[in-house]
Design a protein around this nucleic acid. Structure first.
Length: 479
RNA sequence: GUCCCCAUCGUCUAGCCAGGUCCAGGACACCGGCCUUUCACGCCGGCGACACGAGUUCAAAUCUCGUUGGGGACGCCA
């Protein structure tokens, strides 16, 4: 591998599920690595023992896998790499770029509050900086950072960004409990793993100068930075549980296709002219940091829904059936014949926005007893329709090869003879066969249902219509 | 409070770097219409934005400054 090879990473901290903001960051890193034929690394930043859980790690991994964002290395766990980080601390300590500090958290907290009260920036006052203290039971290691001058960098997305070093304080690198802090671990790993591009949320821009200072103290070359604007909730605040479905897995369970989520996520913050729909390979081909915008965005759920409907229409029937199966199972539909399943999916494809919706709308195909929608039944399964239903049933009975085409032919002849519009017979039949006034095309429905089932359901509808002559009660049989 | 970042339709955005071709284009949503066996798809049309104020210029959505608004960061969290 040459030294020009691009290396990116996604470094979640396993303190919760993967939300769409994190997923987009992962996506951008992944896209960039794939496009540049580089490496994409997954690294779990679990240095916070208190809050890290293996469940969260699992959820994150599962989310990435579902999305199809595969990694070339990892997952690395920072909790297993403390010896590496300590080596970096030793380098810093021996070169005088870091020092031991004996201030307690309580003291620091008090000073922070005092500073805030005075309207000052709440930062460490550097009181142990020149004391040359040694290790101690409650000691931490701090970076001795410059107290004047500027730290600046050129962000690939935001352009030049500069901070006065007075704003920065001597951050803790090593905790009193013997663990590294985020800043140290990130820099150490990014160096050790050969990162070339740091693509992350712009909530990290304030961290960047601190990390640059660590690189400087270590004498290591800097990676390139690209800070992606955040995805905000509809109320324009940081994404959180309050905003409803934000986790990747939630979208999976809601019946979204990974491709739809990926497409939608890619387009928040990034654009390629007026193009809205992208296949995965187009995304890899066309993605660029240059076309990532600077301002925060809100995730547009309506757009995701539209995209999902689009990808459902585009996806091959076989694949769609596979994806739909779990949703059918949760509704209690199992062991359905392949052919019927395929047929059903085929008819539902152009009119389903999610897999959940598709499974729901497929119900009438698979239940033994359909339920009549009261309004539709009252409107169409009435005495007016009775004769037509009887007539058409007889005609359908005579078809040997029961297909969409043969069925349609029967109907065309029927309306011609009776001089009625197709809707006149189609609607009662729709209710008879599906229970509702809304459904896929009635001929395709009949083909999928099959001759026997069709005749049976029409028979029941005839009885129902006949029975409703005197009373308008809409008894419904359960499924 | 201090620092950093951002600012085009309700939302995602194109245009901005290289000022005129923009009384600002696309997408989603919404509203009409067409197609039609219902629904959906599809097609056609409509609604709808350059945050504000100065400056530079023959000319500013585009460049500069300021104001306002929003977000983020200020931890022995990441």
């Amino acid at each position: 591998m040459t030294k020009n090879t691009v290396v990116t990473r996604f470094p979640p901290s396993p303190t919760g599920y993967l939300h769409i903001g994190g997923a987009r960051t992962a996506l951008y890193n992944w896209l960039f690595a794939r496009q540049q034929r580089g490496k994409f690394i997954l690294r779990i930043e679990d240095t916070d023992k208190e809050r890290s859980t293996s469940e969260a790690t699992q959820a994150i991994v599962e989310s990435l896998q579902w999305l199809g964002l595969d990694w070339d290395e990892g997952p690395y766990y920072q909790s297993e790499r403390y010896s590496i980080y300590w080596e970096f601390i030793e380098r810093l300590l021996s070169s005088g770029k870091a020092y031991y500090c004996h201030c307690t958290p309580e003291q620091l907290e008090r000073r922070r509050k005092e500073a805030m009260a005075k309207g000052l920036k709440p930062k460490y006052d550097g009181r142990c900086r020149e004391l040359e203290l040694g290790p101690g039971p409650r000691a931490v290691v701090r970076l001795k950072s410059p107290q004047s001058g500027k730290t600046q960098f050129h962000d690939l997305i935001k352009g030049p960004i500069s901070f006065n070093n007075e704003e920065l304080d001597d951050l803790v690198l090593w905790r009193s409990d013997g663990s590294p802090t985020y800043h140290l671990a990130v820099v150490a790993d990014d160096i050790a793993m050969g990162l070339t591009h740091i693509i992350r949320g712009d909530d990290h821009v304030n961290n960047t100068p601190r990390q640059i200072l660590i690189y400087g103290a270590l004498g290591e070359p800097l990676p390139l930075y690209a800070h992606v604007p955040m995805i905000l909730g509809p109320d324009r605040t940081r994404l959180s549980k309050r905003h409803g479905a934000t986790s990747v897995l939630a979208y999976r369970d809601l019946g979204y296709l990974p491709q739809a989520l990926l497409n939608a996520l890619a387009r928040v913050g990034w654009s390629y002219g007026d193009q809205e729909k992208f296949t995965l390979s187009e995304l890899i081909q066309k993605f660029s940091l240059e076309n990532v915008g600077k301002s925060a965005g809100i995730f547009n759920r309506d757009k995701l829904l539209d995209l999902n409907a689009h990808y459902i229409r585009e996806t091959g029937t076989e694949e769609l059936v596979r994806n739909l199966l779990p949703f059918l199972e949760t509704k209690g539909f199992k062991n359905i014949k392949d052919e019927k399943l395929r047929g059903a999916v085929e008819t539902l494809k152009p009119r389903s926005k999610t897999l959940v919706e598709m499974a729901e709308n497929a119900r009438f195909y698979f239940v033994d007893q359909i339920t009549y929608d009261p309004v539709a039944a009252k409107k169409f399964l009435n005495p007016d329709a009775l004769d037509m239903l009887k007539d058409i049933r007889i005609r359908l009975q005579e078809i040997r090869d029961f297909t969409r085409e043969t069925v349609e032919a029967v109907f065309l002849r029927f309306i011609e003879e009776k001089k009625v519009k197709l809707g006149k017979i189609a609607q009662p039949l729709r209710v008879a066969l599906t229970g509702a006034g809304v459904s896929p095309g009635i001929f395709e429905v009949m083909e999928v249902l099959g001759r026997e089932n069709v005749l049976e359901r029409i028979g029941k509808a005839i009885n129902y219509a006949a029975g409703s002559v005197g009373s308008a009660n809409t008894k419904s049989s359960s499924s």
